[in-house]
Design a protein around this nucleic acid. Structure first.
Lengths: 192, 192
DNA sequence: AACCTGCATTGAACTAGGACAAGAAAATCA
DNA sequence: TGATTTTCTTGTCCTAGTTCAATGCAGGTT
């Protein structure tokens, strides 16, 4: 049950056996069926979850019902709306399982206590957020500067396993193009 | 010389007088003329700078010379390519002064020593990065989901002082639209 | 087997925004 | 002060991507 996360932790921080077992002791293990909405727009996000198994999507919806996928997350990713989680303020995004998911969950309280017991992890979480920021910066650039075709090719290169796991129109909404146009782009790529 | 940053720190962390003066002692104060490139693509970013005075732009350039402005930063902002700064790896962005700038600078070494002397600040910097991430998430959403006009209106609402300080075509490159089209959008708005 | 429901494809008509070009207006500097 | 560079505007034509609608195609469910 903790194999996956412990491997992850060992690779990202330098904990003693005790610290690791303390970490494990405060994690809450939970399973969610496919299509469960873990966080609704307007709610306060009270989890930071490590994906032990499954696939999750974070997305926004505007007034007209137009969806933008912010992120896909699979095994070994952390999922949360950190802004909402940390400031305990309403989120403006949705988080939804796309498959049956096994999650290891921190609440604001357990995270707080974790960080005070194992201050080292403060660093790990900071680096996690930094990486996230940096990759989002790169993505914004590509979203603006690149054609639909190149964005798609880049996507399947960066996330080769995702297309097999999630419906194509979600990928379109991640790339910022319509589902129909992605389909056209794909047939054009295939023909060459 | 430290008034501005000390006010900032007091608002964002809870330091003793000694800690604050230690903080001040390790900061390097430097002035740069307008249009100085502080960081070139390919270089390692060796600064995290607090803007005491002035205005700075962070941007990407693609193979065809197409520019995307990632961020404008003015007084009270921190400027750095954190990914490059922390991992000491080559940056893929440019950072350039748009006005004469007074900066208070941390190097990787001084930041390291600062964080070990005043571990509290680890939290402040983490929150800084989190806020940054969260606002970038919102921006990506708007970039994809919103019309040029709405993006511009949103921009002048969020950053009302920026348009007076920076050339308009940089704002266009922030919004992800061409300078010409921004001009057209503006005349259309003005006519109403 | 028949029937949904969700997903992908294709085509036709349309549009937001881009590229290019040429001037006008500001800002910078000698 | 004029001269040069940078920035902003406006018009024309063009294209990448959208919207809408129709069709097909799984894969569950009853």
């Amino acid at each position: 049950m903790f194999d996956r996360i412990n491997t992850y932790i060992i690779n990202h921080a330098n904990l003693t056996a005790e610290e690791l077992s303390y970490f494990n002791s405060i994690l809450q293990f939970k399973t969610f069926p496919k299509k469960t909405i873990l966080l609704h727009e307007g709610e306060i996000c009270n989890f930071e979850a490590f994906i032990n198994k499954g696939c999750i999507r974070m997305y926004y919806i505007d007034e007209n019902g137009f969806e933008v996928t912010l992120q896909f997350a699979i095994e070994d990713w952390w999922v949360s709306d950190i802004a909402s989680f940390h400031d305990q303020k309403p989120s403006n995004m949705f988080i939804e399982t796309l498959e049956t998911c096994e999650l290891l969950i921190l609440s604001p309280q357990t995270k707080e206590s974790l960080l005070s017991h194992v201050p080292q992890l403060e660093r790990m979480f900071r680096i996690l957020v930094q990486r996230n920021l940096s990759s989002l910066q790169g993505r914004l650039f590509k979203t603006i500067a690149t054609s639909a075709k190149d964005k798609y090719l880049d996507f399947i290169k960066r996330y080769p396993t995702i297309p097999q796991r999630v419906p194509q129109h979600y990928i379109a909404s991640y790339l910022g193009i319509s589902a129909e146009f992605l389909s056209k782009v794909r047939t054009k790529i295939a023909k060459k």
